[in-house]
């Protein structure tokens, strides 16, 4: 596994923000039944995604090395 890359944008943060917005809309009061059910469906889907991310228990520890050509490589590291 090699490559220069950029860190993933924090989709978790975005998802959490969207969830907060959903809760706010629902708490806000005047939502129709249709809207409420749509928000409900989306909210449940997003909270499930978030929970799955958090539950993922596999720890990934990698060692970064740079070869003579300046190329970076990531190798799995034994959990010391």
């Amino acid at each position: 596994m090699t490559a220069k890359r950029t860190a993933r944008t924090s989709s978790f943060e975005d998802t959490l923000k969207r969830l907060e917005a959903i809760v706010e809309s629902l708490e806000g009061g005047s939502v129709s039944l249709d809207e409420a059910l749509d928000l409900y469906e989306e909210g449940i889907k997003l909270s499930r995604e978030c929970a799955e991310r958090l539950r993922s228990a596999e720890q990934r520890i990698r060692k970064l090395t740079k070869d003579a050509g300046g190329q970076f490589a990531l190798n799995d590291m034994n959990n010391a």
Binding site: V23, L26, E27, S32, L39, Y40, G43, A51, L54
Partner: peptide, 22 residues
């Protein structure tokens, strides 16, 4: 993550409660 799961649980709960009210 336990703290975050708690936050999620609260949001999930509120979502349900409000939808049920509607």
């Amino acid at each position: 993550r336990r703290e975050l799961l708690e936050v999620l649980a609260n949001m999930w709960y509120t979502t349900r409660r409000r939808t049920e009210e509607v």
